[in-house]
């Protein structure tokens, strides 16, 4: 069994969000970078659990990005994963990124491709579906549980107001979210071992970009809160009804 896990680099969840160059670029100075939480906690850890259950499983990681991604790739390798591939390209266009990943996936003939449900920076939730279409494979999105039964997978996915359990034959693409696995901390052995695991850098294949970011905006500053005395909570209800008109 071969699993490809897609890893993306994102700013830390507490990073200050600001823009530079006339609001055309994310101001990255001083920002801490992490593995996108959905990729790390759910996609990667679930893949590692599958390898623990069947040690013949091979896990490859793929990232599309510059050399500045290497630290987070090493961290992912420290958690698990056998080797990593970095496609040396920088893009914010989901189609361009998906095409690079699909190319790697085709060459490696994987049984499973895992992505996180979205990245916490550009919130596209698109790469998984695009990769699936490029590979002509089924796609189960927003998975909260993944069980392997022979050459089939039983997957629970979130739907509006509930969940659906699906059965799909491999190969397929799955986007992972909460429920799939529990966050892990890399241990010393993992960190040491990660240094000698292969991190292969490959050049991108030619691909179009279908979208481009023209500019960024920050939301307008919020007016200050209107406080109601704890002795008259009914006043809050009146304000919500008469002033805000939301109840």
């Amino acid at each position: 069994m071969k699993i490809l896990v897609c890893i993306s680099k994102t700013p830390d969840t507490t990073a200050k969000i600001a823009f530079a160059d006339n609001n055309t670029k994310f101001a990255a100075d001083g920002v801490q970078w992490i593995i996108n939480p959905y990729d790390e906690w759910y996609a990667l850890v679930r893949a590692i659990e599958l390898k623990e259950a069947d040690p013949s499983t091979v896990i490859h990681l793929v990232t599309v990005g510059g050399a500045d991604c290497d630290p987070i790739i090493r961290k992912a390798l420290a958690l698990g994963g056998d080797e990593a591939i970095r496609v040396n390209a920088d893009s914010h266009d989901s189609f361009y990124i998906a095409l690079q990943i699909a190319d790697i996936a085709k060459k490696g003939s994987y049984d499973l491709v895992f992505t996180g449900k979205e990245t916490i920076d550009y919130n596209g939730s698109s790469v998984g579906g695009m990769v699936a279409e490029l590979l002509e494979m089924p796609y189960v999105s927003l998975a909260t549980k993944f069980t392997l039964i022979g050459s089939e997978a039983e997957i629970v996915r979130e739907i509006e107001g509930g969940e659906e359990t699906d059965k799909v034959a491999l190969p397929l693409v799955v986007s992972c979210q909460k429920g799939m696995a529990e966050q892990r901390i890399p241990n010393m052995k993992g960190i040491m071992g990660a240094r000698s695991k292969p991190l292969n850098v490959v050049e991108p294949v030619a691909a179009d970009t279908l979208t481009s970011i023209a500019s960024f905006d920050l939301p307008p500053a919020k007016a200050s809160v209107k406080l109601v005395s704890p002795d008259t909570p009914e006043e809050l209800v009146r304000l919500l009804h008469e002033e805000a008109k939301v109840i």
């Binding site: 989901s94 189609f95 939730s125 579906g129 279908l210």
Partner: peptide
């Protein structure tokens, strides 16, 4: 979120989600 990305590839149409 599941369908739009696939359609984007099929029609080679740029997608803005969210």
């Amino acid at each position: 979120k599941a369908i739009a990305p696939r359609l984007s590839v099929r029609l080679k149409a740029g997608l803005v989600s969210g």
